[in-house]
Amino acid sequence: MTAAEAFRIVVGVDGSPESRRALEWAATEARLRHGTVHVVTAWQHPAVVVGYNDDLDRDPDTYRSRAQRLQDDALRAVRVEDVDITGEVVQGHPAAVLLEASHEADLLVVGAHGYGGFTGLLLGSISNQVVHHAHCPVLVVKPRHQARL
């Protein structure tokens, strides 16, 4: 990164509360670093075997549209001034899409679903893959857990 380039944060958003927290964190960090945020939402058209999954919509545009709506909702919810936030909806497996996006990032931010107890120490499959294979540093935003009194 040169002095003329802004610090670029890529954040994966899937519509979950955890991914929205990741977006909020990324936007706040970008403001502090005078950087930019690029939101990536991945979607997949499920493989369908004839005779199975008859209730699934087979139109790929349905899945792309749903992903776009999830991303639009997340972008409307984030309120950080003076931050350039762009979005992109990409077809593919979420981990592969985020790994590709990490080539152009200074930092990749993802949310992780927490399960509490011992399993809460573990990362989800997507965050685990990007932590181990991204082309830039990765920050995993875990859910807040209330303290037990």
Rank of each mutant, 00 (worst) to 15 (best):
A3V: 14
A3I: 13
A4M: 10
A4C: 07
A4F: 10
E5Y: 09
A6W: 00
R8H: 13
R8G: 02
I9H: 02
V10T: 13
V10N: 01
V10C: 07
V11F: 04
G12P: 02
G12F: 07
D14L: 10
G15A: 08
S19H: 07
R21V: 04
A22P: 03
A22W: 06
L23P: 03
E24V: 13
E24C: 02
W25H: 13
A26N: 01
L32T: 12
H34V: 06
V37S: 01
H38E: 14
T41Y: 09
A42W: 07
W43K: 03
V48G: 06
V49D: 11
V49H: 11
V50I: 12
Y52P: 00
Y52E: 14
Y52V: 13
Y52S: 15
D55W: 11
D61Y: 04
T62A: 09
R64L: 07
S65Y: 01
R66T: 11
Q68T: 14
R69T: 11
L70G: 01
Q71M: 13
D73W: 02
A74N: 08
A74H: 01
L75N: 00
R76W: 01
R79N: 15
V80H: 06
V80C: 13
V83I: 10
T86A: 10
G92T: 04
H93P: 01
H93N: 11
A96H: 12
A96Q: 14
V97E: 04
L98W: 07
L99H: 08
E100H: 11
D106Q: 12
L107P: 03
L108T: 09
G114S: 09
Y115F: 12
Y115H: 15
G120I: 11
S125K: 05
Q129R: 15
Q129K: 15
V130G: 00
V131K: 01
H132N: 14
C136F: 06
L139S: 10
L139Y: 05
V140F: 05
V140E: 06
H145G: 05
Q146N: 08
A147P: 04
R148W: 05
R148V: 12
